[in-house]
Amino acid sequence: MSTAIRFVRRGISGFVLRRVLLGLLTLLLVSVIVFAATQALPSDPARAILGRTATPESLAALRKQLNLTGSIPGQYAHWLKGFVTGDFGNSLAARGEPVTQVLGKRLENSAFLVLIAGEVSIPLSILLGVLAARRRDGPFDHTSSLLMLALAALPEFVVGIALVVLFGTTVFHWLPAVSLIPPEDTPFQHLKALILPVATLVLAVSPYIARIMRASMVEVLESDFVEMARLKGMPERHVLWRHAVPNAVAPAIQVIALNLAYLAGGIVVVEFVFGYPGIGSALVDAVANRDLPVVQALAILIAGVYVALNLMADVATILVSPRLRTSLR
């Protein structure tokens, strides 16, 4: 893939190793970007945070806390070292608590939200894609394709607010409009409050997965082995779910992983819409308060999830498609 790391040996393990190295390299560059954007700008972040009226003493104290003293490469090395060892610095807003403490609970909440959204949207969209492909150009195919197109176009906050108006506040009063979860509780205890945020995320990612699944299914259903299975008199349901679907899922895996990665970004807006206490709303708060250590930690964390999921998608695609697997030998 990249000329720089072509020396790594061939084969599947070599491929995986190369992808992992490339992922780590990407993450390193990501950290440089985040560092450069938040710390090495010509403007003084300490003054930007404290404002024009700040005293020199408070500026100096904040600079020290923000690790703004010393040379820029030195600052970066210090910052990265802390990061790798799990020391993300202290929050500027939350009474100086360590960032890990501020985010720990919220990270769990967000992971929970994303996992549920993934567990609902992946089977649902695979099913929709298969159904659309089975009766290609039929009424279901046309309706679902237009609906998916429209849903894919809508920004998440528009979907979220529309759902709140429909089911929470105005048309029906079935579900809570906000998903506030007290810090001592787990999201499990407030499942009803999770329905609308999960629905928003599902509506945001399902169209993409359903679309690729349909395209992939259409191709597989036209192939010789499906024809063969039908000709030998296999029941259609068997042909569909035992033979066609497993082969059609392989090309879709990458899109599925990409969309799970997308969820990591999508939660920012969705959590804000519903007031859900996760890392997304934490990021919005941190940006509003210019709490740079929290912003840095979350930006790198989300990028890390993103890179990891892409990596898994690549590897999974190789593992499930026999043609690619043998070509690597």
Partner: peptide, 10 residues
């Protein structure tokens, strides 16, 4: 490697 919104927020 960043979701666009995260880069914008940074």
């Amino acid at each position: 490697a960043f979701p666009s919104i995260v880069l914008a927020l940074v």
